[in-house]
Amino acid sequence: MLTAVAIAVDGLGFAAWLFLSSVGLTLVYGVMRILNIAHGGFYALGAYTSAWAIGLYTQTGSTIALTYLIIPLAALAAGLVSGLLVERGILRFMYGRDEVLMVLVTYAIFLVLEDATKLIWGTDSYVSYQPAYWLGTIDVFGLPYTVYKFLIVGVAILVGAALYFALNHTRTGKLLLVVIEDREVSSALGINVTLFFTVTFVIGATLGALGGALTAPEISVVPGIGAEIIVMAFAVIVIGGMGSIGGAMLGALIVGFSRAAFVHLYPPAELFSIYLVMAAVLTVKPYGLFALSESRKI
């Protein structure tokens, strides 16, 4: 019983983190058809900015409460700056190129971002645990969990809901869906596709940075954290169906719960649990769970 509860709560916590780390990726892919490896770089930038800013702020000895404001601001700053630089500086010259080539482009950008991060913040680790501690813990059947973990779950739900609403119930969102459906036609209809691309990419980058910024208080921010989340995020959005927000949420839940189950019931398999799940899901549903239907052109 206790184990079942632990699996449920742990799985939910992990799923929330996965969703926040991968939703930007699926958004960028859905709109722009770019499988963005540099997403890992944005995640790392967000984590570093947040850990660094929290560290500076807490040194002043002021109330910890304000750090919860610092986290989204750090994500916004990191995402805006790096997202705009990458999209305006590099990607916009590459639109229309082969999808596979774009993977290489974003990989090259990722390499550059990795070293840029290292040049700015060095190789020492950054710890900024204050926000994760300040809220204390609550017991679930005698197992203590940090309140911060539930806060992350809340943010994940909020982000998911906001994206869903923005896409389906606002004019801009509906226009964006048109762009996704057919780029050329929407361009002919007078929709500014370039602007949509820029905005989407910056939002995607900011979401990646937000994933990192929210995680920073729970971890030690070190070089290489960006590379770790790339494959995990890819797996999540492929399981859910590429380009679907709901799919990313479902994918995150599936991966989160199955990983928690492996850890509690059969720890040795944790190492490749995510790949087992991905292989299993793709075998049954070759295009992911929420695949967007695509018209085949003869």
Partner: peptide, 30 residues
Amino acid sequence: YAGQYGSEISALLTSKPDVVHSSFWGGDME
């Protein structure tokens, strides 16, 4: 380099050991 040990810590807590041994290093250990 997993970084997230929520489930593992729950599993450790439920097994109620007297001693926990870890050779984690670097960022993982922190």
